[in-house]
Write a protein that binds this DNA or RNA. Structure first.
Lengths: 189, 189
DNA sequence: GTCTATACCACGATAGAC
DNA sequence: GTCTATCGTGGTATAGAC
């Protein structure tokens, strides 16, 4: 059920997808869905909450590289692109369907999102303190870099002009440059 | 009617807003709306098409500054932030409701969007040729910079910690740096 | 040009048979 | 655990009075 809902919500939007469609997608009748979810709203929340929890858990599971803040920023950028590329549907829903959450569910998701952003903000702060990064404003740089990185999902399609790895390299370059990394240089190849 | 639909679509989403709600917002009955629009889909398309046409027209009306590509990139960044900040609702709809357009309407909007992106791509190409900008890939840099700039709309609220002008300055700095501008430096103040 | 009334359909959710 | 059937609501869009 989660998979079917994820796919349909991502394609058509929460408000445009009916419980009957979701049921049809998995080959049961609409009534059967209510054995597994209290209502449609809970279904949406579970998808978004699961995605955000998985994001934070995956980040917590990465081993932060030795080295300066530039290295950690690069690590974050690569992690972000890879994690999001592997879950395009969930990412799309997490950004597009926020307004369809009830107030209390929205608060939960917002908190998780803020916690993730704080991870990047911390790296930028450390870089600023170390002197290897130069950002005009920590908060704005955090939002700008995440927007840039997440934007990959809006256009990237496997099998296009550039490979996933190559796109990752190019974005890392732009992220480091935007953050004023002392040793940033354009990748070749 | 346009204003009411714009406001409601931006707040609740196209699929979640009924013609009855739009009618109620302007103080008439639902049936009366059909004197001014063929159907709900046309109403959405008109809003999005009008926004994109206005965007391209406004850009065409700006006087490109004398100087190198760095100057023109800064000009583009400031134009983009200002235009989008002034029309938050329309911008939101233009990005969120693409999937609710019919196939042919979608094609029209997509073409307009591509034409706008081409304006930025051209500046980056010129900068690359002039040697004052260094981007690893024109296409990716175009997408990355537009995503970064448009992202301002997701969090900026008038009356917050930073003024509109200050936000603009900071983003210009990050854009120029990300594009490898030869003379980029962090703004103070 | 706007109203009331309504046709027709789909929605989310539940009840009760099996 | 899944089905069929259904309740109550609200959707888009149209018809015809005024």
């Amino acid at each position: 059920m989660r998979d079917a809902a994820l796919k349909l919500f991502a394609r058509d939007g929460y408000a445009a997808v009916s419980m009957r469609q979701i049921a049809s997608e998995i080959g049961v009748q609409a009534g059967a869905l209510y054995l597994y979810t209290a209502d449609k709203q809970s279904l949406l929340f579970d998808l978004m909450n699961g995605h955000m929890e998985a994001l934070l858990a995956a980040w917590a599971d990465t081993v932060p590289p030795q080295g300066d803040a530039i290295t950690r920023l690069e690590h974050f950028a690569r992690f972000h692109i890879r994690f999001h590329a592997a879950r395009a549907d969930a990412v799309f829903i997490a950004y597009m369907e926020l307004r369809n959450l009830s107030d209390e569910n929205f608060a939960v998701i917002e908190d998780l999102r803020r916690r993730y952003e704080a991870e990047l903000a911390r790296i930028l702060e450390q870089g600023q303190a170390e002197g290897c990064l130069t950002v005009p404003d920590i908060k704005l740089a955090t939002m700008a870099l995440i927007a840039m990185l997440t934007g990959v999902n809006t256009w990237f399609r496997e099998g296009g002009r550039l490979s996933r790895d190559r796109v990752e390299d190019i974005y890392v370059d732009m992220v480091l440059k935007a953050a004023g990394a002392a040793r940033a240089g354009t990748p070749t190849g």
